[in-house]
Nucleic acid binder design. Structure first.
Lengths: 215, 215
DNA sequence: GTCTATACTACGATAGAC
DNA sequence: GTCTATCGTAGTATAGAC
């Protein structure tokens, strides 16, 4: 049962570093919450900073594991056709919406958002893992779905598409206030996903019509 | 020059609390960065927690000051007509986009996002100020622009509209990576705002057409 | 590999000088 | 109103027992 201690350590570290950042979090409380001695952090990760980077790597790995089925589900469709690409985008963002609504995501989401807003070396590890590949993949899909070539405009479209989903987590409390709810139940989740899918159609259709107007 | 010290204290507190959270930040370093003694925090705010809440109030006040011109600009239009309401939504979200892209917003944005994801009493103060009123106002505008009555669906539309803008800050590093830039220059900012305005049209038009299909 | 013990620094709160 | 001084606690790192 070697790795159990390290896994507990990493999961608690993600929560603690997420809330308090690298400097703010304490190895003492992380170790205590993981039911181990503080010096085991030194042993396994060389110190606080090593634990922080290990936590980032753990997030990158977990994201890969969680997102793989979402993208695999997309591969049911023919991603070389506009319709298939669009269906894949919808499936991927619906799946991501489920993740963003779920309580589990609260743990690592703060870690990632902090790195998004104040990037350190840890962000390179997270982005260099699954996240970067997923964004590039999504950009490709937007190209196919709209019949466009890769461009700054297309990438901005990609950003606004995924932005709707990210904001569900990044402005969660405001969203709950506006919806006058304590949490997102299954019914509200379905409404959210339906709206995001409808918005994807609306935005992609507009990009296509812009494309046909100009040249 | 009484208030200068307190203002410096608050602005530095927002930055420090934003990065490290209530527990993680240290009153010592906040006071040092503000060039004053730590005990002045005790004197003015009663302690660390008081400073945290004062920082939240300061953010709420600043948001009001910054957003007032944006909403006032909207009042050029007739907000009782669908066209005027739509134009106001576009103006407000364009202005908000400028804020989210600007470097100043990096300071208080992390404070707010942390409260969004792990709300404390401070969130009530921020939401109870300008933020809540602005979201309700935006919801009203979406109702007028689409000819709908207030509903869960309309509020979800509002969330996705503003979500695009919020994500610019909440996933900033990823966005910069995807755009292959170090920062957002004026040209990219214009492209972003144009896309967001186009998306607003696309989404609102779709809501209107959905409305006409059903009943 | 995991623990205890320890050295040293930094923390928040408070009392009291000015 | 702002400062210094000080107290008790909690922080990281490290050495060494098992």
């Amino acid at each position: 049962m070697r790795r159990v201690v390290q896994q507990r350590l990493l999961e608690i570290a993600i929560r603690e570093f997420g809330v308090k950042g690298l400097e703010g979090a304490s190895t003492r409380s992380i170790a205590a919450a993981a039911d181990t001695a503080m010096s085991s952090i030194t042993y396994h990760y060389g110190g606080k900073e090593g634990l922080y980077l290990a936590a980032a790597d753990y997030i990158a790995r977990q994201m890969g594991d969680h997102l793989a089925p979402a993208l695999a589900r997309g591969e049911v469709f023919d991603v070389t056709s506009p319709e298939g690409a669009r269906a894949t985008i919808k499936a991927a963002l619906s799946s991501l919406t489920d993740k963003m609504i779920s309580d589990e995501s609260a743990t690592w989401a703060l870690f990632i958002v902090r790195e998004q807003m104040r990037p350190t070396e840890a962000f390179e590890r997270i982005y260099g893992g699954m996240m970067g590949r997923m964004l590039e993949k999504l950009t490709d899909l937007v190209c196919v779905a709209t019949g466009s070539r890769d461009s700054c405009t297309i990438r901005i479209v990609t950003i606004t598409l995924i932005g709707q989903v990210i904001a569900l987590r990044a402005s969660r409390a405001s969203m709950l206030k506006l919806l006058e709810r304590e949490s997102i139940d299954a019914e509200a989740a379905d409404l959210l996903k339906a709206r995001i899918v409808a918005n994807i159609d609306a935005i992609l259709d507009r990009v296509i019509s812009e494309r046909q107007d100009l040249p």
